[in-house]
Structures are given as structure tokens and as C-alpha cells.
Design a protein around this nucleic acid. Sequence first.
DNA 1: TGACAAAGTTAGGCGTAACTAACTATATTA
DNA 2: TAATATAGTTAGTTACGCCTAACTTTGTCA
Lengths: 157, 157
Amino acid sequence: MAGMKKTKLSASLEDYLEAIYNLAGDSNITRSRDIAGQLGVSRASVTGALRALKDKNLVHYKPYNYISLTESGRIAAAEIANKHDILKSFFIDVLGEKSAIAQSAACKAEHALGPEIIARLLSFIEFVNHNSENGRNLVEEFRKFCGTKRNKRKVEK
Amino acid sequence: MAGMKKTKLSASLEDYLEAIYNLAGDSNITRSRDIAGQLGVSRASVTGALRALKDKNLVHYKPYNYISLTESGRIAAAEIANKHDILKSFFIDVLGEKSAIAQSAACKAEHALGPEIIARLLSFIEFVNHNSENGRNLVEEFRKFCGTKRNKRKVEK
DNA sequence: TGACAAAGTTAGGCGTAACTAACTATATTA
DNA sequence: TAATATAGTTAGTTACGCCTAACTTTGTCA
């Protein structure tokens, strides 16, 4: 087939890949420093991740050079980023979560939940959105539903 | 306050704690071997986990003895198991996932998603369930919604 | 009661993923 | 162009979570 075997990425490598994808934008180049900043890790950690991603043919990487995604890297990253965005907007728009928390949860969700659940969850989100446009506004109703419960119980931390 | 500072547990330690909780049942005792079996890890790994849990005062553990949960261990485990069950039934009853997959996803979900999202998600599940009993059967509708989309796209792996 | 099996632990190793500190390469600019 | 600042790498450490192999403890039963 067209694509070669997708070597499964660890949670952390997916994060790196997505960060590169977001940082690189149209130019498709970015730098180690920026990746480190984006992910809040040390520059040394980025170097390590870049080596791993290069091994998997996902990035073009030469020490001291700009970093860019390979074709398969871009495809993989786009897929990750897409699911990520859907989850994030579910967390924000439906569940009403704050952006920053939604962001980091979306990052981790996929690895944790696995492809089957994610696929189903994405469908479900689509369903909720679809309903909220064409039928009953579930999001609105959920908000009200939450309102009626507030103060009835303590949210413990 | 009543409880001492909850030292945050790693994903894996929570899994051990929950396994002990489930295995111990009313008797509140279990054995290393059974924990290993339940989680599919080696006996040696269980020993390591038990030491960590004992350090955090969550289990009574003495080498070569039966294992039981402390009071705070039981409280922590019950909380984990409860959220776990809610998530699992959402995955199964709403999303339509298979039991085994739902099980493992529920295990990991909490660590990954974090307490805020989980709390909101639990509310949302409650909302969906509430609706499916008292109002429109959202679960049914979601199933249909999925049906209309099947065959329109490829689910890639 | 002593041999054996089962249960449990210890020791040592592996992979991942992060860190700091120190080094090297590159870029800027006086 | 030489000094310096910035970027990037290397080496070494730590922590976690798992493994296997070998050892110890405990319980059973002939």
C-alpha cells in the first residue's frame, strides 16, 4: 500500500510530533528551542525526541539544523492534531472546561483511551453537535442540568 | 481536616489499588499472586507496587503475609473504582464499546484526563443517562446516528 | 518430619522520559 | 574578526515500571 507500517508512537513522541506540526506551520520548519518552550521540557529532551522521530522517519533532523516534518510525519501529525482539536472543543464547548485544561487533557486522551474509544467518542461528539444545531440544544440543556445540581454536592479535590 | 494530604498516585499505583480493592472484597484481604493475575504483571512487579503503596499508607503489607487496604486505602480505592465504573458503563452503554476495551480505557482515563475533566464528564454521563430515561432516548438516537454514517467512510487503523 | 510445591522476594536489567551541567556550534555585532 | 550570546548537543543521573532468574519463605502431605 501507499503508506509504510505505522510504528506506534509513545504518548510523548506524539506530543513532540504535534508540537512540531503546530510550530512549523506553512513553512514546515521549526527549531529545537521552540519545541522545548511549547512542551515545557528541556532542550536536551527535545534532542532525544528528535532522534527517536528521525529513526521513525517522521522528521528531517540534522544536528544544528532546522527541523521539519517528513511527508509521513506531516500526515501522522495532522491526524493527531485533528482528533486533538475535536476533543478539545468537546471539553470546552460541551463540558465547559477552561481552555488550558482542555488542551492538556486532549493531548493525553488519545494515548490513554485508545483508538476504538476515541473513534466512538468522536462520533458521539459529532452527534451532540449535530443535535445542538438541528434538534434540541443538548449543550444548553446540559448546562442547565449542571446548574440544578450545583450546591447539592461537594466537588472534592 | 480529617484526611491527611492525599499524595497523588501514579496511574499504575491506582491500578494496583483498585485491583486490591476489587479482589479483597468484604474480607479485605488478598494475595500478591492474585493481584499479579488480575493486572497481568509479574509477581515481582506487585511486590514493588505494594512497597510503594505501603509507603503511602494505603495498604497493610508485610512480606509473605496477606495484603489488606488501610482505611485511607479503602477510601481512595472506592473513589477510583466508582469513577471507573461510571466511565466504563458510558463506554459500553452509550458508546457501544466492548467490555474489555472499555475496562482498560476506564482504568487509564482518569490519570490522563485529570480530575476537572473527569468531574465534568461524569456530570455529562449523568445527563445523558437522565435524558435517556426521562426524555428523549439519546443513546438510541446516537446508535441510529452512527448507523446512518456507517459505510460512508473508512475507519482506518 | 522432611521433601516438595507454591507463593513471595530480591537482584539485576531494560526501555522510556525527563533532568542538569558542561561542551560545541552558530550567529551577532562592536 | 574576535568576543559573546544563543542554540543545540552530549554525557551522566534519576525515577518509574516492567521484566526474568534465582533465592527464600511458607504450607502441605506422605
